[in-house]
Design a protein around this nucleic acid. Structure first.
Length: 290
DNA sequence: ACCCTCACCTGCACGC
DNA sequence: TGCGTGCAGGTGAGGG
């Protein structure tokens, strides 16, 4: 159940398919690609070359081009190269299977590749989304065009962050989950970033002091960066039956998330949890006073 | 522009 | 063993 660091790891692992061509696609869950029809989707991606894998926020971008061995199709498709934008939501995973591997339950999309292997998208809860769009319309695509700047880019600077805080009347926790304001955090890393910055999650965003805003800005970048770069947690194996397990790989990082009642790693106070708009929020009542 | 609630699904852990 | 309940890391729609 990925936030930006997990998505980044999936993207890196998926690069094994760059250079492969898609012989055919098979969609078993039509709503995954809706409003496009299954037949249109399959027709458009057939024979395409996978020329790159990238990321925008929590979207995985599978970049396609016309197949090199189909000259006429090549000309037609080069004119408008395609992107499959995939959002894993809660339980979406990719697998890279051999021809004789058994297809696991909840396999909703299968891409047959030119090396006799299959790239499989599975998603237990069926919340995941796949949008097939032309490269040129990526920046106008709903759900993507509204996204905040990438957290590691120059645009996500302190001035930007302060202006976002100033305009908001929400709590910090809620604001940090809004992908159009701050990109990449989910429920776990929002809690972790606030803990690192020693700031109470229920504080109004607009009331944050300049000094604390700077601390939180730094913590957001650090928590995402640390989750991506820590070598012991960066094992993403598409060949495992489960794709890879997001939770287990990263949970040793968690200092407050899912630690209700446990002692705070900094001060020993008991970590608290409260549900807030249906989502659990965890914090240390002593380190993160109101 | 914001807030809140509900919805989308399956599966798991829990208590009885 | 089974059954009911609540919970899950994401997001969008709809109403106020």
């Amino acid at each position: 159940m990925p936030e930006l660091p997990e998505v980044e790891h999936v993207v890196r692992a998926l690069r094994v398919v760059v250079g492969r061509s898609i012989i055919a696609g098979e969609i078993r869950l039509p709503k995954l690609i809706a409003p496009l029809s299954v037949s249109t989707f399959n027709r458009k991606i057939k024979s395409c070359l996978i020329r790159g894998i990238s990321r925008r926020g929590k979207f995985i971008l599978i970049e396609l081009a016309g197949s090199a061995d189909v000259p006429s199709a090549q000309r037609a498709k080069r004119a408008q190269s395609l992107i499959i934008a995939v959002h894993l939501r809660m339980t979406g995973k990719f697998l890279y299977l051999n021809a004789d591997d058994e297809l696991p339950k909840h396999s909703h999309a299968i891409f047959y590749l030119d090396n006799d292997r299959r790239l499989v998208f599975r998603d237990q809860r069926q919340f995941g989304v796949m949008k097939l769009i032309s490269s040129s319309e990526l920046s106008q695509t709903k759900g993507i065009s509204e996204l905040a700047p990438e957290p590691f880019g120059d645009e996500f600077n302190l001035d930007y962050f302060k202006s976002v805080l100033k305009r908001s009347r929400r709590s910090l926790k809620t604001l940090l989950l809004d992908q159009t304001k701050v990109l990449g955090l989910g429920n776990i890393y929002a809690a972790e970033a606030l803990f690192r910055a020693r700031i109470n999650p229920f504080k109004n965003a607009s009331e944050l002091s300049s000094q604390r805003a700077a601390r939180l800005h730094q913590s957001i970048i650090e928590v995402l960066h640390d989750a991506i770069t820590d070598s012991s947690t960066s094992r993403v194996d598409l060949e495992q039956a489960d794709g890879f397990s997001y939770g287990e790989a990263f949970e040793r990082f968690w200092q407050v998330y899912e630690r209700e009642g446990e002692p705070c790693v900094k001060c020993g106070a008991k970590i608290r949890r409260e549900t807030h708009g249906g989502r659990s929020t965890y914090w240390c009542p002593k380190c993160q006073r109101r």
